[in-house]
Amino acid sequence: MPVEYIPRTRELYSDFTPYRWVVNEDTPPLTPLKKPIAKCSVALISSGGVMYRDQPRFHREDASYRRIPKDARREDLNVWHFGYPTADAQRDPNCVFPLERMRELEADRTIGALCDPALSFMGGIYSARKVRDELAPRIVDELQAAHADAFYLVPA
């Protein structure tokens, strides 16, 4: 049975004020793609806390993001996140940031193109308002500047 993370979070952080989860009950807006994914420029975004080379480390409540060149080598990527065990992602960032896999899918034309740069932030941000009003609009600006047709968000 899949893990229920909402009660687990309540238990794990039982010493703190209960977290108020985002709940959206309305039908979400589904924007149909204008063309098949094989023709689309796809952006990779990970909330796993990935940093490229000497980009600054994330910190708690950090609503900033990092631009990661699409041709980045694995050894130039590092991971910082307080909310999940990062050892496997540090060893192989493709666990939460499948940049190498996306490059392969671009090469074999599963997707039209992989957007440059890929983006990452550290998803352990307590304030949903901060994510909605500060981080998300900046990410949207980045996606528009890169002419992305779709984005693939990998949480961690």
């Binding site: 993370y5 796993g48 909310g83 999940y84 065990p85 990062t86 496997d88 992602a89 060893r91 192989d92 493709n94 666990c95 939460v96 940031f97 499948p98 896999r101 990998v154 949480p155 961690a156």
Partner: peptide
């Protein structure tokens, strides 16, 4: 958690 796109 930490393996949303697979094992290392």
């Amino acid at each position: 958690l930490g393996h949303q796109t697979g094992k290392p």
